[in-house]
Amino acid sequence: MKKLINDPKAVVNESVEGFGLAHADLVTVHTDPLFVVRKDAPVQGKVGLVSGGGSGHEPLHAGYVGRGMLDAAVPGAVFTSPTPDQILPATTAVNGGAGVLHIVKNYTGDVLNFETAAELAAAEGVEVRSVLVNDDVAVEDSLYTAGRRGVGGTVFVERIAGAAAERGDDLEAVTAVAQRVIDNVRSMGAALAPSTVPHAGVPSFDLAEDEIEIGIGIHGEPGRHRIAMENADGITTRLLEPITADLNLGSGDRVLLMVNGMGGSPASELYIVYRKAVALLKERGVTVERSLVGNYITALEMEGASLTVLKLDDEMITLWDSPVSTAALRWGV
């Protein structure tokens, strides 16, 4: 294992500390317990948005803390849920009197710990709602969750719900728009090579040189099937077809398309995937209105990519285009 780290046990703390130093204009890092809040938190009268999960998926979640997205992010250990004693103070720290929305990826540990924190916050007088992101069409159940996993669609939920909160929507309305995004977003990914968790020191799964995993999870969970390596167009087709079928995409639909790198694939390869995905959608009469290409929700240094497609409406486009200022997404400011 070769990594730019010091002590494997200190990776998350040192990384978050460095993140805070690099983006001190945007965020404040709290170290005991560990969580990240936007610089001006709490914003009075605004719904606060909190998300989090295991580290190793950067820029998710801390990279999306700031104006127009999250008010707080709670990082757990690598590929491990944050604890309620982190989530609770993050929740209270961003409570500006309008309530707080928890955006939770569908992994068992995340669900249980955010539920516990929400109950504790309610006991302190904070109104908390929760939405569950479950956009992965690859499998119904996995090692980490019951039901579909929460993956790339989380970025879209955080952005669009964050924009709604920023414009002044109340807690009920922000929750509703977050749920509408969840209902209309789907993802699927593929791994060409595994990642290595620092404290483990060995790859999280085995793939032969001529094999790839279709439908991989962001923690290295197995997907739909393991196949022989094929070209980028073939892999893209395998990932996109289940998404378009699940969303029932057809002529006249407008979408937001993200080609996301899993951490170890270069941008040049991601654009080849994007090229094919756009062509396949065009064949269906689907228009790509907005797009992202790059590393937005990773799995350490895993080689591979995921596709995320959101069926858009006019309000979603307006919210997406509104100003955002975070370490990982920034426009209109």
Score class of each variant (00 low, 15 high):
E119M: 10
L120V: 01
L120H: 04
A122W: 08
A123Y: 00
G125T: 05
G125S: 04
V126D: 03
E127Y: 03
R129Q: 14
S130M: 14
S130I: 01
L132R: 12
L132G: 02
V133C: 02
V133P: 01
V133Q: 10
N134M: 08
D136T: 06
D136K: 05
D136Q: 11
V139H: 13
E140V: 10
D141L: 10
D141H: 14
D141W: 13
S142I: 04
L143K: 10
L143D: 15
Y144F: 12
Y144G: 13
T145D: 08
T145I: 00
A146F: 14
A146L: 15
A146P: 00
G147Q: 06
R148Y: 09
R149S: 08
R149D: 01
G150A: 11
G152H: 06
G153T: 07
G153W: 03
T154Y: 05
F156L: 15
F156T: 13
R159T: 01
A161K: 08
G162S: 02
A163H: 06
A163L: 07
A164P: 12
E166T: 11
E166K: 13
E166C: 08
R167V: 15
G168Y: 11
D169W: 03
D169C: 06
E172D: 15
E172A: 15
E172G: 14
A173S: 14
T175A: 12
T175Y: 01
T175M: 07
T175I: 09
A176M: 09
V177T: 12
V177S: 06
V177E: 12
I182W: 04
D183V: 02
D183H: 00
N184F: 02
V185G: 07
R186F: 08
R186G: 06
S187I: 05
G189R: 06
G189S: 12
G189H: 00
A190W: 07
A190D: 00
A190I: 13
A191K: 05
L192S: 09
A193S: 12
P194I: 08
P194W: 00
P198S: 01
H199L: 11
H199T: 15
H199E: 15
H199G: 01
A200W: 12
G201C: 04
G201E: 02
G201M: 02
V202M: 06
P203Y: 02
P203D: 00
P203E: 12
L207A: 03
A208N: 08
D210H: 07
E211F: 04
E211L: 00
E213P: 05
I214E: 00
I214C: 10
I214V: 14
I214T: 03
I216Y: 02
I216N: 00
I216A: 11
I216V: 15
